[in-house]
Nucleic acid binder design. Sequence first.
DNA 1: CGTCCATTTGAGGTGGATCAACCCTAGTGG
DNA 2: CCACTAGGGTTGATCCACCTCAAATGGACG
Lengths: 232, 232
Amino acid sequence: MLTQTLNTQAINTQVRGKIAPAHPVSDQFGAITGHVGLVATEFSYRKDEEIYGEDEPAEYVYQVVSGAVRTYKLLSDGRRQIGAFHLPDDVFGLESGATHRLAAEAIIDTTVRLVKRRSLDQAAATNVQVAHKLWSMTAMDLRHAEEHMLLLGRKNAMERVATFLLEMDRRLAITGIMALPMCRRDIGDYLGLTLETVSRALSQLNDEGVLEFAGARQIVLRKRQHLRDLDI
Amino acid sequence: MLTQTLNTQAINTQVRGKIAPAHPVSDQFGAITGHVGLVATEFSYRKDEEIYGEDEPAEYVYQVVSGAVRTYKLLSDGRRQIGAFHLPDDVFGLESGATHRLAAEAIIDTTVRLVKRRSLDQAAATNVQVAHKLWSMTAMDLRHAEEHMLLLGRKNAMERVATFLLEMDRRLAITGIMALPMCRRDIGDYLGLTLETVSRALSQLNDEGVLEFAGARQIVLRKRQHLRDLDI
DNA sequence: CGTCCATTTGAGGTGGATCAACCCTAGTGG
DNA sequence: CCACTAGGGTTGATCCACCTCAAATGGACG
């Protein structure tokens, strides 16, 4: 596939350098590479650049170093469902089968660490702990997907936005402020809504004093319990 | 948890007998139990009986022998999202973590084969092929969940029903007729629709000659290509 | 300071939900 | 063997949450 070829060439020519495989054990990727001495490579993508396409061979496994990534599926007429947002330290692109089942794009300028899928397979074939780690990472993705099916199938718009805000608050609000990397359309395509409906829900929460804007993508949660009550 | 205790007692008292672990390799469960000499036990549930609850400890892994199973999540006000239907030979209840994240119920009278989760864990800890098989089974569940997120987030009612019919046709129409084990409400809770909307979509497909009813749950597909065109 | 998107807001439309009968049909009992 | 019943399924009428289309506003960046 053309895109895959392009991506691979890009990796070979633009690679910034090998990095040492020493990471804290709490780190998902380091837990694998550290154990088996795999070498990870860093690579960068610009905003909206494709990292891999749907149904492309799964040649690499990725970890976000900085930036943010969306993985998604498309219908033939362009309707898009974002399956997950990947933030710093998150692993994505891990497959048990031969191909990626969702495409991946950088939401903003993004740097990733990557290892060859074959290396991981070999490591897993000889090291049961690596194999178990790969399984548990896929199981975490499944857990998220199951929660998200409940949201997409049965929650109303306000409940979806509340769930989204609490998820992002948990994942990226180290400080009090939540700096969302993605636009309203991305949020809508993640939540199965239109961007206008997302905007209206956020405006209503702002009017109710549940949150405050410091810019459209800079949100401060003021009443987390109110959101939790919506996230039933 | 009370239910778990009851389930376990039921298994001990109502068990129908140990069965030999010899299954064809193509069989998901046999691929594991055959390799490592695990003993599987058979057990039966009546229509609508709970097999395990959400967040219960994952003590067993199950395979449908006959019948059908739904796995689902509930919101506190009773809204239900069915994550998957499990038909004969399907494995369900396989977890990497400690608990079941969806509840499971028999849709009709159902017999399952089950093995202790601890046995599988031990087998996986010593046998890399078993570990890989567990991973790939979880990855298959993830693949299904990702497809289903696209359906729930972005397809309209008719497209959802068409996708459902093609999935069931693939999975249970050995003969020309498709004998659905589940009611319209189950289908609706799987597709994120109401039972009335499911019924209307099926009636419309019947009017268009795309399918024929031989009873509400006995469906014959007449124009599969028409359904595939809807399943974009 | 101007341009270009992203976002917000408004107005109106609609697909699917809700509410309500009604109709099958499988199972039950006489 | 047939009448009765209950639960599942269908169909109709109406409603409304969210979508669509449109325009105004805001903010980032050269």
